[in-house]
């Protein structure tokens, strides 16, 4: 028994010959806010569908709460998890109220207080049919339904889809409140790096079906630095930088290096170059992301 709420080992999945997941590894601890990042088509939604039990992996295993994600245990997982799916569609003929009553009937731990609070906060019209809701309202309703379940885990696929900036902050605030008060584990995929940077404590960047960066966000930001070296004159022979120097870019007399570790050795090496002026900068999540998912 581990204390990992979500665990994936060497997950592989192909659709019609094209690989969607190529040996994905993932570990999410209870109580963490875990950001799952990647470009379109990198495998985010496939992973979430696998964890939901909608798909079966070709090889490898996926577990939620220690239980296999597909098969008979999938129902137990669904009892304890709130989902927001990529497609924010609900039953078009049902009203907002109707959806709440319907969903409520499946979850004995339903939180009426939370449902009521979000209904007001998100300004959802109770008697409107879901087909007539705007995209943003659909997202909000789905979030309401996911959170009010009283679940231990929230799995959210692009939860801020369709939300304006103010609504996004409202949503993030509620998620943080939930995390603080109930210790809910939050696993969410997003394109919005700023949102992830704001609330995640751990992240995983997935590219072409594999995890290319994982770890605590704070640690990653401490580890990754950008070093700018300005030389006296252009070097004829390129420097063999020490380990930890990823993505070196040279333009004339300027060398820009993204460093993933071993910063002190690299700084020493840089300062030893003739007439070099060396500066270091902190690195944003966007830089880390782009450096790892750009096609080279």
């Amino acid at each position: 028994m581990t204390d990992f709420v979500i665990e994936a080992n060497e997950l592989r999945k192909s659709y019609k010959g094209a690989p969607a997941l190529n040996g994905l590894n993932l570990r999410v601890r209870a109580g963490s806010v875990y950001g799952f990042l990647g470009r379109n088509g990198a495998g985010k939604t496939t992973t979430i569908k696998l964890l939901m039990g909608l798909l079966r992996a070709d090889s490898g295993e996926a577990r939620v709460f220690g239980l296999p994600s597909d098969g008979a245990t999938s129902i137990e997982i669904h009892r304890r998890t709130g989902f927001v799916t990529e497609d924010k569609q609900m039953y078009p003929y049902m009203t907002v109220e109707g959806m709440i009553r319907f969903t409520r009937s499946f979850f004995p731990k339903w939180r009426d207080d939370l449902a009521k609070r979000y209904l007001e906060m998100f300004e959802l019209p109770p008697r409107r049919k879901t087909a007539e809701l705007s995209k943003g309202m659909q997202s909000k309703l789905m979030l309401l339904l996911a959170i009010s379940r009283g679940a231990e885990l929230l799995m959210l696929d692009e939860p801020s889809d369709g939300l304006d900036p103010a609504a996004v902050q409202d949503m993030l605030r509620e998620l943080m409140s939930l995390a603080a008060a109930e210790g809910t584990t939050i696993f969410f995929s997003s394109h919005q790096l700023a949102e992830v940077e704001q609330i995640a404590d751990h992240i995983c960047i997935i590219d072409r079906g594999r995890a290319v960066v994982t770890g605590s966000l704070d640690d990653l930001k401490c580890q990754y630095q950008r070093v700018l070296v300005i030389l006296e004159r252009e070097l004829s022979v390129p420097v063999r930088w020490v380990e930890g120097a990823e993505h070196v870019r040279q333009e004339g007399r300027t060398v820009s290096i993204l460093v993933s570790r071993n910063i002190d050795a690299l700084l020493a090496q840089a300062e030893s170059l003739p007439g070099a002026s060396v500066e270091r900068f902190p690195v944003t999540l966007q830089e880390i992301f782009l450096e790892h998912v750009r096609t080279h």
Binding site: M52, G53, L54, A72, I75, E76, H78, R79, F83, T85, E86, D87, K88, Q89, M90, Y91, P92, T103, F106, F107, M142
Partner: peptide, 14 residues
């Protein structure tokens, strides 16, 4: 596949 099916399948029903 169509949207609301995902919602239904996210419920704890076999």
């Amino acid at each position: 596949l169509h949207g609301s099916t995902y919602f239904t399948l996210s419920l704890p029903v076999s």
